[in-house]
Design a protein around this nucleic acid. Sequence first.
DNA 1: CATCTGACCTAAT
DNA 2: GATTAGGCCAGAT
Length: 112
Amino acid sequence: MNNIGSCNQILATLALVPKGSVVNYGFLADLAGLPGNARMVGRCLRESNEPTNWHRVVRSDGKVAFPANTPQAQEQRSLLISEGIAVVNFRVNMKKYLWKPDLHTMLAKLSY
DNA sequence: CATCTGACCTAAT
DNA sequence: GATTAGGCCAGAT
């Protein structure tokens, strides 16, 4: 699979993440069938022109991936808060908000 | 080909 | 908690 197809997989999977939940880069890569490609997730988000749920992607420790002083970090924070997610010091509680995909959703992803 | 870089991750300290 | 070191992968130089 080329990188563009991989990005499509990543973005398609990201589209399944519901409002009020988040995923981290590595986990999203895993779900998209690309274990070990966490860094590619960031690239795909950066290079994507279509609207995405980019704000629902955080680092494995729950922190926003941008430096706190940047406008991007602040926008992500406000978007997450607007979805009902508690954001403290640019960090969310992963135990509480990490998306756990259910079987039904995963089967739907297979486009039956 | 060698190195560096980045919206990353894990384990160890 | 914070920091470090090593691993990871694709692009850019």
